[in-house]
Amino acid sequence: MSCWDTLLQYGLRAVGIGENLLPKTDFTLCQHVVLIGSGLIWNIYFGVLALIFGFFLANALALAKASANPLLRKPAEWFIFVFRGSPLFIQFFLFYETFVLLPRTGIEIPLGFTTITLATSWLTKAWAGALIVLFLNTSAYTGEIFYGALRSVPKGDLEAADAYGMHGWRKFRRVIWPTMMRLAWPAYTNEAIFMFHATTLVYFSGFPAFSQMGDSLYYATYFASKTFNPFIAYPVIAAYFICLTMLVIFSYGLVNTYLNRHLPQNMRTKIRLRPQVIR
């Protein structure tokens, strides 16, 4: 069987398209590469969506944490503390255990004139449940980064905005927010990289795999446990993640260049990769 056939059979196996049964004997390098690569679809799905949704919540959290109103500040502080202070591993377990306790038929919310039923069963599936955990988690980490950046917006910028007669929403949108993004971007890039790394925990911590559809690490361990040889499966997945990381660095680098476009060459913030936001 050629590698092309394998690609057709298993290229989309992780999302349930293609051959139903996984290979069982006579594993080839091609099968490793194809199946682990197909699992990578899930890693990218989780990473990209959590980062997109998380970006918005993180902005809200940063503003709430910087707010003078304790009704906004306190919840934001606690949210960030709980999600940054505990291991993602434990968060996955806890959320899964909580989600399965919700009534299967859905939660009924009486609205007076009518009752709407909130479906809950999809929460226990990894595609939704794990995504929610990752989304909340990355929001907390990113929120803290944005909050730090918000506090370091230079005083001069604010005074300049005042001098131009800007205030309120206009001042925020045209002066504070762009600077905050520019300052936060290098750290946010790191967060994005480690967010993608964290997606490998999904199938390791509570959320079950259905019909053997899992992420790249799921298939890597599948091979390692069948061939008893860690020297092929793990390097393959490592190579995939190195490529993924490069892609993240590249795309975030583009945004960084854009955010810094108005500054002279020597004042631009460079993305320095630091492992500061691993979970």
Binding site: H197, T200, L217, T221, A224, Y234, F241, T245, L273, P275
Partner: peptide, 19 residues
């Protein structure tokens, strides 16, 4: 120094002890 940036730590933990 750069290996931990590219590869998730879990993969190291799965691989390093056996290796």
């Amino acid at each position: 120094t750069s290996m931990v940036r590219g590869i998730p730590d879990i993969i190291f933990f799965m691989f390093v002890p056996i290796a």
